[in-house]
Design a binder for these strands. Sequence first.
RNA 1: CGAGGUGUAGCGCAGUUGGCUAGCGCGCCUGCUUUGGGAGCAGGAUGUCGGGGGUUCGAGUCCCUUCACCUCGACCA
Length: 478
Amino acid sequence: MGKKDKLVEAITAMDQDFTQWYTDVVLKAELIDYSAVKGCMILRPYGYGIWENIQKNLDAMFKQTGHENVAMPMFIPEGLLQKEKDHVEGFAPEVAWVTHGGSEKLAERLCIRPTSETLFCDHYARIIHSWRDLPKLYNQWVSVVRWEKTTRPFLRSTEFYWQEGHTAHATADEAVEETMRMLDVYADFYRNVLAIPVIKGKKTEKEKFAGAVSTFTVEAMMHDGKALQSATSHYFGDGFAKAFGIQYSDKNNQLQHVHQTSWGLSTRSIGAIIMVHGDDSGLILPPRIAPTQVVVIPIAAHKPGVLDKATAITEDLAKSFRTRIDTSDKQPGWKFSEHEMKGVPLRLEIGPRDIDANQCVVVRRDTGEKTTLSLDQLDESIAGLLDQIHDNMLAKAEKSLNSRIYETSDWDTFKSLIADKPGFVKAMWCGDPDCELKIKEETTATSRCIVSEHETEDRICVVCGRAAAKDVLWGKAY
RNA sequence: CGAGGUGUAGCGCAGUUGGCUAGCGCGCCUGCUUUGGGAGCAGGAUGUCGGGGGUUCGAGUCCCUUCACCUCGACCA
């Protein structure tokens, strides 16, 4: 047993048991703790720190696209929830109800928001009167509650944090444009901030959001080849507007219904970060959202000058990067492993030998590569390395995604691909829900999204062999 | 909600056909020595054996029940 083995024994190896690896990482990297309520997790400082950085980056993108933040109540009266038929049918089975206020039974029970369409619609009906009031581009950062049967940290919990954008527009075209704009924002965010490549597409009727005209999604591929629906953007048409009476007078003094969208990204994105980038030593965090980008580890800290120098470097770097120094009395080796497990992108070692040579040792989490850097112009070196890490993580994830998308038009090949090859299968679909259902029943794979739609004579449905226009990505999903 | 699994110290576990004061490793605390890949020595603290009920002279151990967590299905971000 070498020391490396001991390190690995803390976390289950990915290829031995991926779900156990995931649970180990989530707990040992101190992202969450379980709570007293089933299915509810506590976001610990390190886990919440990731979420804060996700919020910071994504919120800036929302602001750039003209959106404003608001805060809606967490309670929805039953009558309000029931206004839109498809919506209530979709969510009713998994809502939590408040029936009492103090010891008084409520005349009308209140559900704890599973999503806030109804609240926004109710509000919009009151504040939108004129074409001059449009568009309304609102977003909120809140938690919602869905009474899930099976829960897993970040991937599916009873309460989870997310943002939900809700917009109202004068025309259908504008609303469609908004739907696609926000889908692009999510795809860009995943790529440029989380270093995760995603596939954009449209959900099938079966998979779309309750109450939506159409749902668009970004799908990511996890290390085990399974799909994770990573964010969604919905076009509502005027269905909610009609149910809630959201009308405005247009420029010709005609009463019109608004056209709406909603879009959301949740703490599930943290699950994606873990399962796309992680390795057997633990987390590997994308530099742009890592709570700590650089951890400084003084070596032989008791020796004169070491701690002072390490502290000075930390303070200097902290002006430009999220930098922390580890002054605990643990052994250096212990610290190395600890910060690797927590996915800190860069580790900076500084000891007596370095100080004499005016240098430090910097180690990349993504490659393990160790380099010696001059203490002069350290800022530029670190900035360059963090960008390189991002680019490398993205490139690696992209390669992993692209190398595991298979394509076939043959039903038997399709079945064996789903069964034997982790990843996605691209196959044509005629659009018949029965064919979609057959795929799910016989392979457990579901349609992830329709990536494109175009009529071509020679293309046939992978299931029934009839003419097919939809290019669909299929896969097993979380 | 269906199938299966696990609950003993902070974590990982052992605990024999039911039997005396419930153990081990790691971690934790104190002190000293150490420090470039999970340190060493010495001393110390920590338990409602998940909860409730039952059988028994006696239950961590057997029975019933309940709760939580994990895995696989059905549903979702």
